[in-house]
Design a protein around this nucleic acid. Structure first.
Lengths: 136, 136
DNA sequence: TCTTGAAGCTCTAGTCGCTAGAGGTCCTAT
DNA sequence: ATAGGACCTCTAGCGACTAGAGCTTCAAGA
C-alpha cells in the first residue's frame, strides 16, 4: 500500500495534482486508513502512470478518462486508436501553425533598422498585420 | 469615435474580449458617452490591433503589456527585441517538443497487433513509459 | 509510552485568457 | 414615441492545475 506521497515520488506527479485527478474522477485510492489518509495499491500506481504518460503526450484529461474507460472495459480498442489518431492530427496542425509563427517571429526580431529617434520597426510591425508575409 | 462594436468589427476581436483587455489594463476607451458607453479614437483602434496581432503571434498579455509600455515610452527598443527573441526561442522549443510527441503518437497509433482477447498494445504502451523511444 | 515534526487532510481561492449569461440601460432609426 | 439592437456591469465557468490556511494523523526516536 502506498501513501499519496509515495505515489507522488514514484510517478513524478505532485501530491495536489493526484488529489485533483481524484476529484476529476480519474483515480481513486483503493482504501483509506482509519485516520482518513489515502492508500493505493499497485493498480493505482499503474493507473497514475497511465494518466501521467497521457498528459506528457499532451492528451486532455477528458481523452485520458475515455481511454481509461476503454482500458477498463477491455476488448475493442478502435476508439482508443481513434483518440490517438485525432490527437496526432491535432499535434501536426499545431506544429504547422507554430512553424508559421516561427518564421514571422524570426523576421520580426530582425526588422530594426531605425536610426536614432525613429520608431522601432519591430514595434511598428507588431501593430500592422499587413506587414506579415503569411497567415497566422 | 468608435463604439466598442465598431472596434470589434474593425479588428475581429470580440466585444467581451475588448472589455477584458480593459480590465487587464491594456486598453482604455478615450472617453465615455453620457450614458456610460465606451468611445474609442484612432489611437485606441491601433492599440487594439497591436494587441490582437501580438496575441495571434502567441504572446502573453503580460508580454504585450510590456511591449505597449515600451512603445508608449518610445526610444530604446532593446527590451522589445529581447521579448521577441525569447518568444522565438520558446516557440522553437515548443515545436521541437511537439515533433517528438508526433513521432511517439504516430508510433503508438500503429502498435496494435493484438489477437482477439489479448490486450491492446496502444493502451499498454500508454501505461508504460519504458516503451517510448525518445524523451517527452 | 510520549513527543515531535513531516506528511496528510479538506476547503477556498488564484492562475490565464477568455466566454456565457443574467438583468438592466442606452442609442438610433423609423 | 417606440422598438429593438447594442451597450452596460457583474458573476460564474472553462482546463489543469497551484498555493495557502488551518487542522489531523502517522511513524520514528527518546
Amino acid at each position: 500500500m502506498f501513501s499519496i506521497g509515495e505515489l507522488s515520488r514514484a510517478t513524478g506527479v505532485k501530491v495536489p495534482t493526484i488529489r485533483y485527478y481524484e476529484g476529476a474522477g480519474l483515480l481513486a485510492p483503493e482504501e483509506r486508513t482509519e485516520g482518513n489518509q489515502r492508500r493505493y495499491g499497485r493498480a493505482g500506481l499503474e493507473r497514475l502512470q497511465f494518466i501521467a504518460h497521457g498528459r506528457e503526450l499532451g492528451l486532455s484529461l477528458e481523452a485520458i478518462r475515455h481511454l481509461l474507460e476503454l482500458s477498463d472495459r477491455g476488448r475493442d480498442c478502435t476508439d482508443a486508436h481513434l483518440i490517438a489518431r485525432r490527437h496526432l492530427e491535432e499535434t501536426r496542425a499545431r506544429i504547422a501553425r507554430l512553424q508559421r509563427l516561427e518564421t514571422e517571429l524570426a523576421r520580426l526580431s530582425e526588422v530594426c533598422d531605425h536610426g536614432p529617434g525613429e520608431p522601432c520597426g519591430l514595434i511598428a510591425a507588431l501593430g500592422d498585420h499587413g506587414q506579415c508575409l503569411g497567415e497566422h
